[in-house]
Each structure stands twice: as C-alpha cells, then as structure tokens.
Simulated scan of single mutants.
Amino acid sequence: MISADDPDLVVVVESCDDAEAASAVLERSSGWRPEEPAVLRHHLSLPSDAINTARALLAQDGWELRPAEGPGADDRPDLAGFVAVRVQKLDALHCSQESSRMASLAQRHGGRAVGWDALQPAPN
C-alpha cells in the first residue's frame, strides 16, 4: 500500500477544468496506472472559519485535509489553499463523484474547489 507521504510519488494526472470529464482527463494521462492505487488530491480554497468543519466532514470518508504547499490558488485574501488527500484506486466514476462532492463542500463553506490531481510512485 502506498502512503500520501511517500517521497517517490509523482503527479500522473491532473485537472483544473471542472468542465472536462474525468474519463477524458484519465484517458490523456500517459503515466497513470489504473491497476495500482493512487493518492488523489483535491485542491480547495477555504476560509479560515470553515477549516475545522471541512476537516471533520472529510475525515468521515477517510480524507485528510492538509494545508497546500506554496501560495494559495486564489487571489482572495480571505481564502487559504488546502488539499484533501486520500489513497484509493482511481477511476473516472469515483473522480467525478469526489470532484462534485469537493465542489459542493467548498461552496457551502464559502470557498471553492480548484482542481484535482493524482500521484503514484514513479515507475522503476
């Protein structure tokens, strides 16, 4: 099993366009290995007063909410960048469902979903 903290992980697929189908995003990836687990990361911008609530809601389904590395994805000073992280098998259906869920969660709490990516160990 892989860990979200594995230093050998590399981004194998990413999407910042919520209008593009997850199936198309996965299909165009040359590095994604569908038979192997991946670390799925949803990039979120959230206001500080929503962080604890979002963290608790996400934890119910095995997600961990972490501060994003580097500057936030939004130019709004009231929002900070976060990533919701979980190890799972990656497929188009679950990516779509989780993207929708993340967008809903962020919107309900005054933030926004910025996009998603997935990491897997670099091929040997």
Rank of each mutant, 00 (worst) to 15 (best):
M1Y: 01
S3F: 03
S3R: 13
S3T: 10
A4Y: 01
D5N: 13
D5H: 04
D6W: 01
P7W: 09
P7N: 00
V10D: 13
V13P: 10
V13H: 03
V13N: 03
E14N: 08
C16G: 09
D17M: 05
A19E: 12
A19P: 03
E20V: 12
E20H: 12
A21T: 05
V25T: 14
E27K: 15
S29Q: 05
S29T: 12
S30W: 15
W32R: 01
W32S: 02
R33C: 13
E35Y: 09
E36G: 04
L40M: 06
R41A: 11
H42P: 01
H43I: 03
L44P: 15
L44V: 09
L44C: 06
S45W: 00
S45C: 08
S45Y: 00
S45Q: 01
L46S: 02
L46P: 01
P47D: 02
S48W: 05
A50E: 00
A50Y: 01
N52D: 14
N52G: 11
T53S: 15
A54I: 06
R55S: 15
R55M: 07
A56L: 02
A59G: 10
A59S: 14
Q60T: 09
D61I: 04
G62D: 11
G62K: 05
L65S: 12
L65N: 12
L65D: 08
L65V: 10
R66M: 00
P67N: 00
P67C: 07
A68G: 00
E69G: 03
G70W: 10
P71D: 09
P71K: 13
G72C: 07
G72A: 12
A73Q: 09
A73F: 02
A73V: 04
D75V: 15
R76C: 05
P77L: 07
L79I: 11
L79D: 08
L79H: 05
G81E: 02
F82P: 01
A84C: 09
V85H: 07
R86T: 13
Q88K: 05
K89N: 11
K89W: 07
L90P: 01
L90K: 02
A92E: 14
L93C: 07
H94D: 07
Q97H: 05
E98F: 04
E98S: 11
A103W: 00
G111Y: 08
G111M: 09
V114T: 06
G115W: 04
W116N: 06
D117M: 11
L119K: 13
P121T: 11
A122L: 15
A122V: 08
